[in-house]
Amino acid sequence: MDAHPNATVASEPTKVYSAQTKGGIASAVEDLWEGLKRGSIWRAFAWDEIQHRYRRSTLGLAWIVISYVIFVLAITLFFSGFSSMQSGGFVAYVAVGYAVFGFLIGNVTDGCVVFSGASTWIKSSSLPYSIYIYKSIARSFFPFIIQIATALVIMAFFGWRPHWSGLLAVPALAVFLLNAIWIQLFFGLIAARWRDVAHLVGALTRVLFFTTPILWVFEERTGIVRQVASINPLTHFLRIFRAPVLGDVVPLESWYHVASWTVGGWVVAIFLASIMRRRLPLWV
């Protein structure tokens, strides 16, 4: 299934498939780039999967908004005692934090099945593997954006007003997407090779929900809780988006953490891809 849009090309370059063609750093990077260029494929597939999830329900895509609103309102009702914040402030805090956490952790859990779930394709088509990654990210980014929009409406209802500093959340979104790629590549490869990874990740994400400042406020905590949260990368990823939206300043320390995770994650994921990618069709 190789893509050659121009059917009239007479002399095409010879393609060579050998042990070298799918190994090495250059070919791992090329795979990511070739996949990115084929946006029409992964966008179409992502949209199809989003529709499929809600296809036979009466309310359809509205369920994204409904289930999110139910969760945010219920949590705020029960847990507003956790913080000394004004109730409106706490709703905003939880609403934004929960959506961001869901998107970031979703990339880890989706990442564990990004290749194994595409096994029919991987075993019978020679499309770049990164297509499945971009499809998976697009599929979770769509509900995330809807949730953020819903959060802003809820917040406005509680008296929140937009401010110019909120625009600083836009680069944070770009950073999220940049990280989503290596996260899915990394977890996709190791979970395809070692099936235990998906189970381990499932167990850890439940713990992470409580050790990440979503239902409680980082600045109000001291001692061990604060220490654990400050080495938890999610704390910092959450902050670079949530703080500007809520009109707070992002501590420089959080940007350092995010930058190191982004660079480190990319380096490790590309390295893994360079040695593991060749074997992928045999693992999934």
Binding site: P13, V16, Y17, S124, S125, P281
Partner: peptide, 23 residues
């Protein structure tokens, strides 16, 4: 031959648009 699984040794050369119906 379809470029799905790279061989451990040797190589495959393909010239032209190829379509496979394996699955």
């Amino acid at each position: 031959l379809s470029g799905i699984i790279p061989p451990d040794e040797g190589c495959v050369n393909i010239r032209g648009r190829s379509t496979n119906l394996i699955n």
